[in-house]
């Protein structure tokens, strides 16, 4: 329990530190929001007035704490460029991204673990080599390339799935799945290799242990030895990699979203970076940081819970 509380506190502190970094990062970004709203021909007076109005002249310290307390109340501020409430605008985008990420994760995580177990069972034989080869290839190809390859076959040649993955409210769930099928496929291919290889390596590491020999000498089937005796002891490293990949699915899919015109967080962020819309960039940064820290914290907690030494004291 003490360990868990420690992890939670640490996570919150990290998040606070991340908020400082994000704020500082956006402070030193070149460019000026007033300039980009009003254009090159704006008069100095108009620029000054707009800056005053937007509140960018306040000292950085004041603005940081205003922002931070706003965030704590659930107010992410308003976008400078279009005056929309960021929290509202982001909610839709975030839920789209989470929908895409979850769909990919639900397929990729179990698949990676099963493939990892199979690779260990047949290590050095053809199934192992095939699995390693395929996943390594899919990791090595850039994701936009994978996207276009998938699009070429699944949309252009065989016309199974649409190439544009725009989803909106009012679509039925089935339609939504239909729309995101190709990006999900691409994302699965991107994250599968990493997780599968880590599963394989972690289990192989455990396979050296004396208790695996005990299990083999019990006459258990090789697959039982791996699934019952090796895998439960390899959970901690696997969970860590799984969480890093889940975080990637949420925060790192900008390219895939752009390729498939998917209305998610990535696109939202990219749009507003180009417009120098600092509050939006800050809000996105903070959400991404929260996702990363949250998932890694979850990984730590799962690792602790999966370890009987930490769960049950002597």
């Amino acid at each position: 329990m003490k360990l868990l509380a420690q992890r939670l506190t640490l996570g919150l502190l990290l998040l606070l530190a991340a908020s400082v970094l994000i704020f500082m990062g956006t402070e030193i970004l070149p460019g000026d929001v007033a300039q980009s709203i009003l254009g090159q021909s704006a008069t100095p007076q108009a620029l000054a007035n707009l800056r005053e109005q937007l509140g960018v002249n306040e000292p950085a310290m004041t603005r940081y704490f205003d922002w931070l307390f706003g965030v704590l109340r659930g107010d992410l501020g308003t976008a400078l460029t279009n005056g929309q409430d960021i929290a509202t605008a982001m909610a839709g985008r975030l839920s789209n991204t989470l929908f895409l990420a979850c769909s990919a994760a639900v397929i990729a995580v179990p698949l990676a673990i099963i493939l990892g177990v199979i690779a260990v069972r047949y290590r050095g034989q053809w199934p192992d080599k095939l699995i390693s080869g395929v996943t390594l290839t899919s990791v090595s190809i850039p994701e936009f390339m994978l996207g276009y390859i998938a699009m070429y076959f699944l949309t252009v040649k065989f016309q199974i799935f649409p190439s544009v993955s725009t989803i909106h409210e009012g679509m039925s769930l089935l339609d939504k799945f239909q729309a995101i099928a190709i990006p999900v496929l691409v994302l699965v291919l991107v994250v599968l290799g990493h997780m599968m290889r880590m599963t394989r390596a972690a289990i192989l590491n455990v396979m050296q242990s004396a208790y695996i020999e005990t299990a083999e000498l019990k006459g258990l089937r090789p697959i039982t030895v791996i699934a019952r005796h090796a895998f439960p002891n390899a959970i901690a490293p696997v969970v860590n990699v799984v969480m890093i990949n889940l975080a990637y699915l949420v925060v790192g899919v900008v390219v895939v979203e752009v390729v498939f015109v998917f209305p998610g967080m990535g696109q939202y962020l990219v749009d507003h970076v180009t417009k120098r819309d600092v509050p939006v960039v800050q809000a996105c940064g903070l959400v991404f940081a929260a996702v990363y820290i949250g998932l890694n914290m979850l990984a730590d907690i799962v690792s602790i819970l999966s370890n009987p030494r930490l769960r049950h004291r002597k």
Partner: peptide, 16 residues
């Protein structure tokens, strides 16, 4: 035929 290993501490699965 069954087996009793030298170091039982290492020969038991720590997660079971």
């Amino acid at each position: 035929v069954t087996y009793v290993a030298q170091s039982a501490a290492a020969a038991f699965n720590p997660a079971m």
